[in-house]
Structure formats: C-alpha cells, structure tokens
Computed example of a mutant assay.
Amino acid sequence: MARDAGNNTTEPRVDGNHSDILETTEIAPASHWAAFLRLKFANTSRGVRLVEKEHKGPLYIQKPFYPEGVAVPHAYLLHPPGGLVSGDHLNIHVQVEPHAHTLVTTPGAGRMYRAREDESPQEQSATLEIAEGGVVEWLPLEAILFPGAHAKATNRIFLAEQAKVIFWDVVCLGLPANGLTFDRGSFNQNLMIYRNDRLMLQERLVLNDDSRDFLQASIGFQQHPIQGLMVAGPFLDDTNTLVDELRNLVGASNALVGVTRVSDFIVVRSLGDCSEQVRESLTQLWSPIRKTLLGREGCPPRIWNT
C-alpha cells in the first residue's frame, strides 16, 4: 500500500501538448473494449459550448445541460456497457479553453468487474487540460470494484495560470450490500495535478495482496469499504476560515471526513459504508468550496436526483 500527498518539486517537467497522452490508446482484441473520448469546451458568443468532440468505441457524451445558464455547461459522460472487464481501457481527454468552465459527471455508477484468469487489468485514464482562467469540475458518480478486479485509474490534471479544478472520486471496494468484500484483486489509483507543467500535488493508492490489511487498519480504511476523495484549488489566499467552516459542517454531520490543506489545494477524504452517504458528504462540502473558489453557489447536476 502507498498513499502519498503533497508537493513534489523533483518530478520531471512535463512539456508539450498533453494530447499525446490520449494517443497511447491502442485497439484491443475483439473481446476487449478500447475506447476514447476527446472534448473541447470554449467561450463563444452563445456562452460556453462544446466546440469539438471525438470518440472511438462505446464512450460518448450527452448533449450538455445548462441549469446555471450559458456560462457553465453540465456534461454527462456515457459508457453504455456500464463496466470494464479485463483488457478494457477507457481514455478521456477534456480540454477547456481560456476562461471557459464546465462540470463533468456521469449518470450512474461505473463498475470494474472480476478479472479474467490472466488477470489483465481494466483501466480508465482521464486527462483534464485547463487553459488560463478556465475551470473544470470533475464529479463522477462512484466506481464499484468487484472482488477479483485488477483495476487501474489514472487522472492527470494540467492547470495553466489562474486555472482551477474541483475533482472528486468515490470508490466502493467490493459489494457491501451483498456482503462481498474486496478480498482479492488489486487497485492502483493515481491523481497528479500539474500547474504550468510542474507537479504540485499527487495522491496515490495501491491495494493488492501485500496491502490487504490496510482495509482494516486504523490508519487505513478502518473496515469501511467506501472511500471518497475531493481536491479543489489552487487557493492563492488564506483558507483558514473556509477550512474551519468545512470542519464544522463535518462535525455537525457525524460523517467520517477529514479536511486538510495541501500546498495550494484543499483535500477532503471520506470513509463510509454506503456510497450515497459518502457522496452526500462530499456534496455538502463541495458547495462552500465552490462558492469560495469559483464564486458560484452549489448546483448539483439534475441527473443525481434520478
């Protein structure tokens, strides 16, 4: 098991166009899905619009909704198979042009099914490239890891000057409602946030047979199968008042949630036994974070209510 967070100024500089990350997706054998989706949002005379999209395989986007007006489209990612099996690879690239803003979510939970006998992994990669003054809110519903899955999730976020991001991730290890624990398989989760192509924050979680005890440890998951992570920033001003407000909200809800500031980012961690409960705890804190960071009131996507 490894869990890291914080500055890493020794990380090599990443130069050039980040779209080359997307091109590493190759066509898989017929029994596997290798899909990619490329989206670009930009300011236009009619507000922020989806100006470019490209996809290959079963990965699409629903027509954006505008519950907040034309300045913030809400985009729903669609993956018709509903889950990943061994050898599947989803690759998502969201590009936001200067001073554009988009919120990206999903209409339902994702699933990582039990791996085949060869234990080849199922992978999802997301790259968010946010130009000067742009904003991406990446708020997918939970991912469910079936016992025996060998899953990899890699998220790379590239921020230009004055760009901002709110990112969250909710993972359900096993099927607690059915009494199935994540007692076999592996999970490798990595989040990297760069500003001006230098690594500012990294979060990594590795679970495998050598680190299974971490799920029960008091410094780990404490026997809770659901974990939530939210990272927001960068905050260039003092955030003590906001952190105090968030911690007071946590205390009032009795949820198992921690709030810290790491570098220029606020990091929220949540543990629970119900994915909806964990997501609700993140949503409760997302609203004041959003208001402080982006100057906007919380506006949960309508799909969450269906």
Rank of each mutant, 00 (worst) to 15 (best):
T154N: 12
N155F: 01
N155Y: 01
R156I: 07
R156N: 11
I157H: 10
F158V: 03
A160P: 03
A160I: 01
A160G: 10
E161T: 12
Q162K: 15
A163C: 07
K164P: 04
K164T: 06
K164H: 06
K164M: 02
V165G: 09
V165S: 12
V165Q: 11
V165T: 12
F167A: 14
D169I: 08
V170C: 08
V170S: 08
V170T: 04
C172L: 08
L173F: 10
L173C: 13
G174I: 03
G174W: 05
L175R: 15
A177D: 14
G179S: 02
L180W: 00
T181R: 14
T181N: 14
G185V: 05
G185R: 05
G185E: 04
S186P: 00
F187M: 10
N188V: 05
N188H: 08
Q189E: 12
N190A: 14
L191R: 13
L191W: 05
M192S: 15
I193W: 03
I193Q: 10
Y194C: 12
R195M: 14
R195I: 02
N196P: 09
N196M: 11
D197M: 07
R198F: 06
R198W: 07
R198Q: 15
L199C: 11
M200W: 08
Q202M: 14
E203V: 05
R204I: 00
L205G: 10
D209K: 02
D209L: 01
D210P: 06
S211M: 06
S211Y: 03
R212H: 09
R212T: 11
R212W: 04
R212E: 11
D213M: 07
F214Y: 09
F214V: 15
L215M: 11
Q216Y: 08
Q216F: 08
A217F: 06
A217Q: 14
S218I: 13
I219L: 13
G220H: 11
G220D: 05
G220P: 10
G220K: 14
F221D: 00
Q223Y: 12
Q223H: 14
Q223F: 09
P225F: 02
P225T: 04
I226D: 09
I226H: 13
Q227K: 13
G228N: 06
M230Y: 10
V231S: 06
V231Y: 03
G233L: 00
P234S: 03
P234H: 04
F235H: 03
L236I: 02
D238V: 02
D238P: 00
T239K: 11
T239R: 08
T239M: 08
N240S: 15
N240A: 15
D244V: 03
D244I: 06
E245D: 12
E245M: 01
E245W: 01
L246W: 00
R247N: 07
R247E: 10
N248K: 07
N248L: 05
L249A: 14
L249G: 15
G251Y: 02
A252T: 01
A252N: 02
S253P: 02
N254R: 10
N254G: 13
A255G: 11
V257W: 05
G258W: 01
G258Q: 07
V259Y: 01
V259N: 07
V259G: 09
R261N: 03
R261P: 02
R261Y: 01
R261E: 01
V262A: 07
S263N: 13
D264A: 12
F265R: 11
I266Y: 06
I266M: 04
R269D: 10
L271C: 09
G272I: 06
C274R: 15
C274L: 10
S275H: 10
S275F: 03
E276F: 11
